Amino acid sequence: MTVGELSRRTGVPIKTLRQYTDSGLIYTIGRSAANYRLFGADALWCVHLIGQLRSLGLTVAEIRELTGTADPIGPRLAWLLQRSRQRLSARIDELHQTLRRIDEFEDAHRTELAGRGGVCWPGDPRCVAHA
């Protein structure tokens, strides 16, 4: 199948499939007479697996690390999943901090946000400072 057909069958954009091929995550079985990349049925499985790993938070570089070793994949994948979990936990913490800042801002500016006064930003010439 061509990269276009692989894209249609997997829902993955052609550009992404080319990147996967260029980085060695998917292998072609050659080229057509018109010089199109050709893929076998195993490419469907590879794209599905890459999608699963990406949905678990692994980066393309981490997935490439998995394919670049002769060692058993299980322990390495477990470590990468733990690293993904740590990244996600840190991101969740950052988002919770952002929510707290929103709460604090809303509390401090409740009147202005309700439309009963203008929000004044320091240095804004359009704004008359509150007394």
Rank of each mutant, 00 (worst) to 15 (best):
Q82P: 00
I50L: 04
S89N: 10
V12N: 11
T111C: 11
R116Y: 09
A78M: 07
L66K: 06
R76W: 00
D124I: 08
G24H: 02
R91D: 08
Q86Y: 02
A78F: 06
R37S: 02
L49S: 07
D124L: 07
L81A: 12
Y20W: 04
G68K: 11
G57W: 02
L44G: 03
F105K: 15
P13C: 08
G117Y: 02
R126Y: 07
G68E: 10
T111A: 13
R9P: 00
L38A: 08
Y36E: 10
R83Q: 14
I29A: 06
G57E: 03
S7G: 04
R9F: 00
F105G: 11
I92E: 10
G4N: 14
R110N: 12
L6H: 03
R31G: 05
H130R: 15
R126L: 10
L17H: 02
T21K: 09
S7H: 07
S32Q: 12
Q82K: 13
Q97A: 12
N35Q: 14
P125T: 11
V119N: 02
E104F: 06
G11W: 12
R31A: 02
R110Y: 05
G68A: 13
A108I: 09
L80H: 05
L95C: 10
V3C: 07
R87P: 01
L56E: 06
G51Q: 03
I102Q: 12
L80V: 04
S23G: 06
R8P: 03
G11S: 10
L80P: 02
Q86R: 13
V47K: 00
C127A: 15
L66Y: 05
L95R: 15
